[in-house]
Simulated assay, not measured.
Amino acid sequence: MTPDPRDFGNPPVQLLFCRQCRRAVNTYAGMTGVTYLHTIELRGGTADHRPDPAPVTEIADPLIECDFCSASDAAWIYRCADQHTDIRTVTTRVVRLGDYRDRHDAARARRVETAPGLTQAWGEQWAACAGCGQLVEERDLYGLIRRVVEAMPPKLTRGNRLLRVRGTLHTTYSAVFDTLIPGRGRIEPGHPLGVWPSGSDGTR
């Protein structure tokens, strides 16, 4: 995953929210076009409907949750360079025959082949609750990772998944910290993109 350098003199890309549940939506691009997924599903939650995306400014009273720890009381909007994550699909797993007979689906793969899958677009804006916002202000990368991991469902961090999750968060949040625009916007009723101090919202 690498930051996509942008001219921050341009207006920020709109956040997408679902018209039905008023929660954030993530964007994926693949061979079949653009698809959407509720952000809550990325954090181990579930949704009982398909996303119906629209710019957050078109959603009445959007439910803005912290993009870091998922807290329901997001207070701040930060802006950074857009990020894209390439997600590859496993196409082939090669295992030893004897190992498969003994362990079946738990057999250790000797070789794994993958193919390009979806590309996830994270966007430029990150909502933060007061606690995560404080860690962002302090540029406390490891403190932020620890806070987010502790808020995750156990099924996402159990066993050797924890190391992988921490590594992914380190890559993502490092890029956020490295490209943050000075200042932050306070989320207020009617201002889902935040109320920014003059001259600190990345515009020139």
Score class of each variant (00 low, 15 high):
Pro55His: 05
Ile59Gly: 09
Ala74Arg: 08
Cys69Ile: 12
Asp61Met: 04
Ala60His: 10
Glu65Ile: 02
Pro53Trp: 09
Pro55Val: 06
Pro51Glu: 10
Pro62Trp: 02
Cys69Met: 10
Pro53Gln: 02
Thr46Asn: 12
His49Ser: 05
Gly44Cys: 10
Pro51Phe: 12
Ser72Leu: 01
Asp67Val: 02
Ser72Met: 03
Ile40Gly: 00
Ile59Glu: 13
Val56Met: 07
Pro55Trp: 12
Gly45Pro: 12
Arg43His: 05
Asp73Met: 09
Arg50Tyr: 07
Cys69Thr: 08
His49Leu: 07
Arg43Tyr: 13
Ala60Met: 05
Ala54Tyr: 03
Leu37Ala: 06
Asp61Ile: 05
Thr32Trp: 01
Glu41Met: 04
Gly45His: 11
Pro62Asn: 03
Thr35Ser: 15
Glu58Phe: 01
Asp67Gln: 08
Pro53Ile: 08
Thr35Phe: 06
Thr46Met: 13
Ala54Arg: 03
Ala54Leu: 01
Glu41Tyr: 00
Pro55Ala: 06
Leu63Thr: 05
Asp67Gly: 15
Gly33Val: 01
Cys66Ile: 08
Pro62Gly: 01
Asp61Gly: 04
Cys66His: 14
Glu58Cys: 00
Ala54Ser: 01
Phe68Pro: 00
Ser70Ala: 15
Tyr36Ser: 07
Ala54His: 02
Ile59Val: 08
Ala47Ile: 10
Glu65Lys: 14
Ile40Leu: 04
Ala60Tyr: 02
Leu37Arg: 00
Val56Thr: 02
Glu41Asp: 02
Val34Phe: 01
Ala47Phe: 09
Arg50Glu: 12
Asp67Ile: 04
Thr46Gly: 06
Thr46Val: 14
Pro53His: 09
Gly45Leu: 14
Glu65Leu: 09
Ala54Trp: 00
Asp73Asn: 15
Ala47His: 12
Ile59Phe: 09
Pro53Thr: 04
Ala71Lys: 14
Ala74Ser: 11
Leu37Pro: 01
Pro55Phe: 08
Asp48Ala: 11
Ala74Lys: 05
Tyr36Ile: 06
Phe68Tyr: 15
Ala71Gly: 10
Gly45Ser: 13
Glu58Met: 00
Val56Arg: 04
Val34Cys: 08
Cys69Trp: 05
Pro55Asn: 05
Arg43Asp: 03
Pro53Glu: 04
Ile59Pro: 07
Asp48Lys: 07
Cys66Thr: 10
Asp61Lys: 12
Ser70Lys: 15
Ala71Val: 06
Pro55Lys: 13
Pro55Cys: 04
Cys69Arg: 08
Asp52Cys: 07
Val34Leu: 07
Ile40Trp: 00
Gly45Lys: 14
Phe68Leu: 04
His38Leu: 08
Leu63Ala: 07
His38Ser: 03
His38Lys: 06
Gly33Pro: 02
Ala74Val: 09
Gly44Thr: 09
Ala54Asp: 09
Pro62Val: 00
Thr39Met: 11
Thr57Glu: 13
Ala47Met: 15
Thr39Asn: 00
Pro51Gly: 14
Cys69Gly: 09
Ala47Asn: 06
Ala60Pro: 00
Ile59Ser: 11
His38Gly: 05
Glu41His: 03
Tyr36Val: 04
Thr57Asp: 13
Thr57Asn: 10
Asp52Ala: 11
Glu41Gly: 00
Ala54Gly: 02
Glu65Arg: 15
Pro51Arg: 14
His38Cys: 03
